[in-house]
Design a binder for these strands. Structure first.
Length: 610
RNA sequence: GCGCCCGUAGCUCAGGGGAUAGAGCAGCGGUCUUCUAAACCGCUGGUCGGUGGUUCGAAUCCACCCGGGCGCGCCA
């Protein structure tokens, strides 16, 4: 039995048998499933083909199932623990032979990467997530996107795809000016106290910065230190304002990167928006701002970067028109409900054009990288306030000649907070927000990640801070991790009790006969159940990848731990009967490997003790 | 008004055509002399928002309605 695609193989064999028996071309067979059985009494896999055939054959599904069962009993032979027989309206439940589980455990214990799936159509995927403005610390919503994106990246890789994780830095919008002003507002008195010369006119520049003191506090401190350390003369001039802006943005990005690293989000690339104006550092960041962002008017033809190329591409495709002094894109031709401005009447590009340029750039990089011929894919994870942006962006990409499926957008749903009974409202302007760093300090990385990941991505999520902190011992993340710690503890104990190191390594345990596990008592039933869950694991990864649904993996692990703990309580692994003990140790070793792997995909640790 | 998301146990949420709808928390009662009690066992808790439809089969798909959230800028 190959653990990884056993269900798929079964399905193919069943399809082949059915096609011959019912004289239907294989391609004409109705869609059917060989899916994990919902309950242990329904065996290991359930097949609904007979029910699906009822309509095309215009026959009773039970009868179809009878005939199918007869054929399959010959085909599957000794792989089945009991002959197939129709159940309910025509289910065929496959009860697998015990010896297959020995093979499965063997594969888990000896395989280099036993859960790594070989995708039928491996894709080059660019996964972009978080991409918060560099104008403040990362917030909890960003944390949700970070958990989601990094877990999804791992899951997609485990499902056989190739994934690049990317972060878009919005460092070329008017917000960065606001941010620089706000930082200056916090720092100007500090400068003066430290003996800096600042004219009243320059001082007033910070008056109307739009960001709250708390939001810019961390960066202000850091920029002030930088000035003190690097200034030739203590004079704050008008031109120093430019550096107040760029240094603030750069410092903020560094803080964000630190938070992301601590949270376990591993990006291969941070793509700065200002590169869309001037790529390959042809112009330093400061010059991009002064040349293209600060001026009131802009001639886009003078912009040397991808943002102009994107405009040209759209124009060449005949998708643009001029009206009211602005350049518009005919997004309505691709399903949008209104056309969109891409170049304002002052010549400056809108965010939509920048976003199109950025995605075209990503797409080019993907195509250059992909030599397999399979369609590459861009997946973006956006905040919930960007729903309205999906249609225009996709329409823009289609207008530039990309296929509709090129971009897939996932929305990370709202996160609200509850402190006991009170709902905590957050506002960026007021500055009473909870940052990702706050959250990590309060509940820890593992708990935060698990709480985010066990929810479906787009649904709203209410985060009960009291529950996550005070009652953290009853947290689902710990519940799964504790299962792992207990298994590790069993192995330590085994060494104390006279088992040798050599005896307990995976390659040795893989040779153990698993037959002692299949007893007729409660212990045997629970052991069979653990093995049943074990063989579903690769399918769970596959399903989580295909559905972009990390919560399926989180729930699976939770459920598996929920099978393990009662068994652990009821059954002693290190019993006197050596054969039973070794079989149970082999089971534990396989479960440990699985849990470590699964937690790893979600970005959680698998601690050896707790 | 148009579009998207959501409505499932007291609370927070899974399940998104399949069999008797699940978990955590909260509540009640038990369990450490035995590999970790961050655990286990038992009990309590549901018209899956409503009404119609499609289907052998609907919490799941479709239509309409009710309720909650968000989006509909020459902002990002």
């Amino acid at each position: 039995m190959s653990l990884k695609n056993y269900a798929l193989q079964l399905k193919r064999r069943i399809a082949a048998v059915a096609a011959i028996h019912f004289e239907i071309a294989a391609a004409e067979l109705p869609a059917f499933e060989v899916s994990p059985s919902s309950e242990a009494r329904f065996g290991h896999f359930a097949c609904n083909l007979a029910m699906q055939l009822a309509r095309p054959l215009k026959r009773n599904p039970r009868q179809i199932a009878e005939e199918l069962a007869e054929r399959l009993n010959i085909e599957l032979g000794e792989e089945l623990a009991a002959p197939l027989a129709p159940v309910g309206q025509g289910f065929l439940n496959l009860h697998l032979s015990e010896h297959l589980f020995g093979e499965a455990v063997n594969e888990v214990l000896t395989g280099a990467s036993p859960f790594q799936w070989q995708a039928e159509k491996p894709q080059q995927i660019n996964l972009e997530y978080v991409s918060a403005n560099p104008t403040g610390p990362l917030l909890v919503v960003n944390g949700r996107a970070a958990a989601l994106g990094s877990a999804l990246a791992s899951i997609l890789k485990a499902a056989g795809h190739s994934v690049t994780q990317e972060y878009f830095v919005n460092d070329a919008g008017t917000q960065v000016i606001e941010f620089g002003k706000s930082v200056f507002r916090e720092n100007r008195d500090r400068y003066r106290e430290a003996g800096w010369e600042i004219s009243d006119e320059v001082y007033a520049w910070g008056d109307d910065g739009g960001y709250a003191a708390k939001t810019v506090a961390e960066v202000s401190e850091s920029v002030f230190q930088l000035r003190e350390e690097t200034a030739c003369e203590k004079k704050y001039t008008r031109s120093a304002q430019l550096f107040e802006i760029t240094d603030s943005v750069i410092a903020q990005l560094e803080f964000q990167r630190a938070s992301l690293g601590r949270f376990g989000a591993d990006f291969q690339r941070f793509y700065s928006e200002h590169l869309l104006y001037a790529p390959d550092s042809r112009l330093p960041y400061q010059d991009v701002l002064t040349s293209y962002i600060f001026p009131e008017m802009l001639d886009i033809e003078q912009v040397p970067g991808p943002i102009r190329d994107a405009w040209h591409t759209l124009k060449e495709h005949g998708s643009t028109f001029e009206a009211d002094g602005a350049i518009w894109l005919r997004t309505t031709e691709y399903g949008d409900d209104k056309d969109r401005v891409i170049i304002r009447s002052n010549g400056k590009p809108t965010y939509l054009l920048a976003d199109i340029a950025y995605h075209l750039n990503k797409w080019e990089r993907l195509e250059n990288k992909d030599d397999s011929g399979d369609a590459p894919l861009m997946i973006d994870i956006w905040g919930p306030d960007h729903y309205g942006h999906i249609l225009p962006t996709r329409a823009g990409l289609m207008a530039a000649g990309l296929p509709e499926e090129a971009l897939e957008v996932l929305i990370a749903g709202w996160v609200t907070f509850k402190q006991g009974e009170k709902v905590v409202a957050m506002s960026k302007r007021k500055g009473n927000l909870i940052t990702l760093d706050d959250l990590m300090d309060e509940v820890g990385v593992d708990v935060a990640r698990f709480l985010f990941l066990e929810r479906s991505p787009e649904a709203e999520l209410e985060f009960d801070l009291e529950m996550a902190t005070e009652q953290s011992s009853e947290n689902p993340a710990y519940y799964v991790q504790y299962a792992h710690a207990r298994i590790c503890s069993i192995f330590s104990k085994a060494l104390e009790e006279g088992y040798s190191e050599e005896q307990l390594i995976s390659t040795e345990l893989s040779k153990i006969d698993m037959a002692p596990l299949f007893t007729e008592d409660d212990a045997g039933r629970r052991q069979a159940e653990l093995l049943r869950q074990l063989i579903y694991y690769p399918g769970v990864i596959q399903s989580a990848a295909r559905g972009r649904a990390p919560q399926r993996l989180a729930h699976y692990l939770h459920h598996l731990a929920g099978e393990f703990h009662p068994w652990y309580k009821m059954v002693k692994v290190l019993v006197d009967d050596r054969e039973t003990a070794l079989a149970r140790l082999a089971l534990c070793a396989a479960l440990r490997k699985l849990i470590t792997h699964g937690l790893g995909l979600l970005g959680l640790n698998a601690p050896e003790s707790m």
